[in-house]
Amino acid sequence: MTVSLSGRGVGHSFGDIAVLDGLDFEVAPGQVLGVVGPSGCGKSTLLELICGLRRPDRGTIAVAGRITERERLARSAWMPQTDCLLPWYTALDNAALALRNLGHSRVEARAEAGRLFDRFGLSGFEHARPDQLSGGMRQRVAFLRTLVSRKDVLLLDEPFASLDAITRAELQEWLLPVLSAENRTVVLVTHDVEEALYLSDTVLALTARPGRPAAMIEAPPGAGPAREHVVTGAGFGRRREELLGLLKRSPEPTAGERG
């Protein structure tokens, strides 16, 4: 079952600092919403609000029509900006965390999570410790861990930000078919406009803090997996320039933003 996600007039502040303001969004079941915006504009905060780790100061967020934090938390899985792989577990045990928490036996959980390792280009690394993995592999394990939760809503916070350009392009190309096959409702935060357009159905651009909606842009339709064809297409380029223009016009965030 795939569920919808929506926000109405969402706003949030930390103390005196307004971080998000007046956000409306709607994500249909199985769609991917990209969120772009300058550093410190509240993208990570938005994800924490959606998945019920925080309560928004203003407005409501609904996941499958449920608006309480507890019910949103029960339906959404969060991939934090830092991968948060637990160094005392192997790649496989990290990926299987959700199943272990659900009470599956270690053998069962490992078998189920292990089935995905091949598809994620991780076979052979099941028993590696996180510090033995490359940056790209760590991100894939972290994503796998999120996916294995079987939750309907996935909240991905800059999944590829820490990677070099080539690895990032490779992983984007890899993620696109995974997302369409999985049919989950996804919010993907990134500061890479191209990545947002390539992976999302709709892109929400935010202004500098406090993050307000600057634009909502439909990504070019019929995006195929061949990334170099997509990102060089005419419609793609026009939208990319449009988004970049919007982000450039919004003023630089002031000091004190979180990394």
């Binding site: 924490e48 998945c51 780790l53 938390l73 959404s76 899985a77 969060w78 991939m79 934090p80 900006q81 830092t82 948060c84 637990l86 965390l97 959700a98 272990r100 928490n101 659900l102 861990r145 939760s149 939750k151």
Partner: peptide
């Protein structure tokens, strides 16, 4: 790391887990 704890919360973890 508080993010690790919060990540676990989104993965069904109970307090004791």
């Amino acid at each position: 790391d508080p993010d690790s704890v919060r990540m676990m919360r989104t993965l069904y973890a109970s307090r004791s887990q």
